[in-house]
Amino acid sequence: MKFRSLLIVAVALVAWTNVPAKSASGVPTYIASAVTDSARPPDDKAQDAKRKPDEVLAFAGIKPGDKVVDLMPGSGYYSRIFGKIVGTTGTVYALQPTEMDKAAPKGLQSLKTFAGTPAYPNVTVLVQSAAAIAIPEQVDMVWTSQNYHDLHDPFMGSPDMARFNRSIFDALKPGGIFLVLDHAAAEGSGLSRTDDLHRIDPAAVKAEITAAGFEFVGESKVLRNAEDKHSLSIYDPSIKGKTDKFIYKFRKPLS
């Protein structure tokens, strides 16, 4: 009986030591440290109050050692944070579609200023057509922030979304996560506002991605804004930076 009690204590102690340390806000310390890292540009840090990267990433579940794809990374706001979280045993692929590079070349230019440098040696830039995504290895997470709607726009070549999402599915390890953060369009609007308002109906995203074989895990509402009426472009001065954003988490089944 005494041995059994000692065994229970030992198991409990091991379990406790495997729980990630958390900051005062309840966010894992490796996420909090990456967000407050001194290497991040002031312009990026100035966006943190609205973008809430610590809470968003805690929901996503990214952790040290992960292999992550930052799909359509813009100037690298999240790529830099990912690089610090996954550390020396992890990898970040900042994947910029060639179509988006033609439309917004400054993003790729920004990525190339830090990817592979001593501060971010684990960040690699990939430039590929959205119609033929080919990630070098299976990864733990594919992440896309505020850009999934662009895949439905003419300037991106309107790729076959069933094929596109299946390529993401194939790139993930079993149990891997596909995280989509985007500007919400009005309920029932489907794909009709991706070009003019740069928004997408969350239900349309869920339908497309689950059709590729993903399981819907859940949603974070940390960036939702009930005051956004979904009627204005995300670039309208009255709503820019304050749009209603959904964060959906999908998982590739283990088998």
Score class of each variant (00 low, 15 high):
1 M>R: 10
6 L>A: 09
6 L>F: 08
7 L>R: 13
7 L>F: 13
10 A>K: 07
12 A>C: 14
13 L>A: 15
14 V>E: 12
22 K>A: 09
24 A>S: 15
29 T>Q: 15
29 T>E: 14
29 T>H: 11
34 A>Q: 10
35 V>M: 03
39 A>V: 06
39 A>S: 15
41 P>Y: 00
43 D>W: 14
51 R>D: 02
52 K>Q: 07
61 G>V: 05
63 K>E: 07
65 G>R: 08
65 G>C: 08
75 S>V: 07
82 F>M: 06
83 G>R: 04
86 V>D: 01
89 T>D: 07
94 A>S: 15
95 L>C: 12
95 L>V: 12
96 Q>S: 09
100 M>P: 03
101 D>F: 00
107 G>P: 13
109 Q>I: 06
118 P>L: 04
130 A>S: 15
132 A>S: 15
137 E>Q: 13
141 M>H: 04
141 M>S: 01
143 W>N: 07
147 N>M: 13
147 N>Y: 05
152 H>P: 04
153 D>W: 05
154 P>T: 05
165 N>V: 02
166 R>M: 01
187 E>N: 13
192 S>A: 09
193 R>F: 05
194 T>C: 14
196 D>S: 14
201 D>H: 07
202 P>N: 02
202 P>G: 02
205 V>L: 04
208 E>D: 14
210 T>V: 02
213 G>R: 00
219 E>H: 04
220 S>Y: 10
225 N>V: 01
226 A>R: 12
229 K>V: 10
232 L>I: 04
235 Y>S: 15
238 S>E: 10
239 I>D: 00
244 D>P: 15
246 F>L: 11
253 P>V: 06
255 S>I: 08
